[in-house]
Amino acid sequence: MKEEIIIAGFGGQGVLSMGKILAYSGIMQDQEVAWMPSYGPEMRGGTANVTVILSDNKISSPILNAFDTVITLNQQSLDKFESKVKPGGLLIYDPNGITHKPTRTDITICSIDAAEECAKIGNPKGYNMVVLGAFLKMKPIVKMDNVLKGLKKSLPARHHNLIPLNEQAINVGMDKVKVEFEVK
């Protein structure tokens, strides 16, 4: 198994920490992982993206031209990364504020209105976990108990009381992800 993912959005949307939790979940099931962020001044409020690779074997290049899964959380990221999904791959996007929708017909396209869903459950900080849930529904590459272990590892101990809330948000994402186009 090898899954190459890029998550892209605004700084503050929890892009990097979502990637980190995913990577930690991979470690919990004894996989090789890589978490490669864009870094620099753009991290301070602009766009942020992170490449996450989970693999049963040693990971060669952490720099990728195309991805099995692309997750975009704003228009700029959708515009930039839609073309980077491998044919037959998966695109998940947040439709909030999207004026130009994805158009490819050789990939599976899903949407998750994560802001609305996390608002509904009164957990606005659970935004990135709703997105993670949407991804895990479509590609259950890590088991839920490993995700929870990963959460525990990546959160400081003082935040461990928030794990149930995060789990709830992940479940909401799994439940609410919409398949807009499915490639055969």
């Binding site: 990577a23 870094y39 990971i59 720099i63």
Partner: peptide, 10 residues
């Protein structure tokens, strides 16, 4: 280099 420094791995 910046890749190895910034990348997270096991």
């Amino acid at each position: 280099d910046g890749v190895i420094g910034q990348m997270m791995e096991k």
